[in-house]
Design a protein around this nucleic acid. Sequence first.
DNA 1: CGGTTGATGGTACGACCGTACCATCAACGT
DNA 2: ACGTTGATGGTACGGTCGTACCATCAACCG
Lengths: 208, 208
Amino acid sequence: MPRRVDHEERRRQITDACRRVVARDGLEAATFQAVAAESGVSVRLVQYYFGNKHGLLVATHRAVIEGSAARFGGGTSPGESAEPPPPRAVLRALLVAQLPLDDARRADAVVLAAFHAAALTNEAVTPQELRGAPRALVDLVAAQLLRERGDGALPGDRSGPGDRARLDAELVLASAAGLTQGILAGHVSGETALAVVDRLLDHLVDPA
Amino acid sequence: MPRRVDHEERRRQITDACRRVVARDGLEAATFQAVAAESGVSVRLVQYYFGNKHGLLVATHRAVIEGSAARFGGGTSPGESAEPPPPRAVLRALLVAQLPLDDARRADAVVLAAFHAAALTNEAVTPQELRGAPRALVDLVAAQLLRERGDGALPGDRSGPGDRARLDAELVLASAAGLTQGILAGHVSGETALAVVDRLLDHLVDPA
DNA sequence: CGGTTGATGGTACGACCGTACCATCAACGT
DNA sequence: ACGTTGATGGTACGGTCGTACCATCAACCG
């Protein structure tokens, strides 16, 4: 047996470098040579661990998605003993966590935007286990809205409170995506985005 | 004098071809050879009319932006004699016009998303006269909201109705962008997007 | 202690891309 | 008529990218 190496750590090291390259110079700049130079290994090694470019890009896409998802759970894990926080606070934390308000989240958002745009015309860069993720987020937001409004009838009702909560949940997620896009493009400041989030929550919890 | 040709028409013919290529295969597929083949001219001619690739991309970006903007004015030009339509109808028309609900608008939205993502790491593909466009849209939406609510105090007030209208206008535009993104990615259907738009308008005009 | 084998480096090859250069055609003023 | 000149075609060149191929090193088992 020759010397063994932690494959997962090496792959993480390389996908991290790829993530930095994409965040800095865009998806088309993520060549084997650029990623190898950024991660401090040889071109041959990148090829060895990911086979071809498609494998590298898919692995990087999955890594950045998992990294972003990990930031969601960070604020809600402790405090199981106390009573659950009010739904408005949960929703606000969920929205704010999505916004690219610091450099790390901005880099992730830029990378995700690059992959998102590429998926519109390529559809092979998205790992196929991620197709249903937005639907789960809608359910989560809708559940919080129903909890806030005191209505518990979630399963399939026509034009009932559950239907309205579902539309409001789509509105919440669309607003978060749009605000993220505006912040990245420089059209919207971070303070304005936070004010818009609070204004949206006012609309959602005020009129019952 | 040799034979003269309408330069604007030729440029439009080529930028249209470039727009189709980007909508179909993405920005990185917009090579000189692909655009030349799509527009039915030689590579040399594309070079002749746009100088280099940067010129071609900037011209295409401007063309698709102007084309999208032209669709906005199409529904509001006639009927100057009658009374102005209610603000809610104006806002709804403005939102719906942005959504990629048919093939033409979808193609434009895909191309704009590609340029938007490229601008995050390149910032040379956006013609510089387009930087202030979103700000004008915010003013337009905020004015309609104030007209709906019967408050006329627009210029700089602190925490007044104008400030709230401004935040609501940002919310409207962010929602439109987010819904567009969701439709393009296939997470949101056209009917759901329209229902979300109506739900948002309910929130905006109901609680005064 | 030697050989099997995972890990790594270097490099060459074919394809494509952007661009510069040279050539040709056609129309209109003189 | 004819030459000036805008419009167009073809092609070659340097660079880069993805990938395949060959070689080397090192560790552990037998």
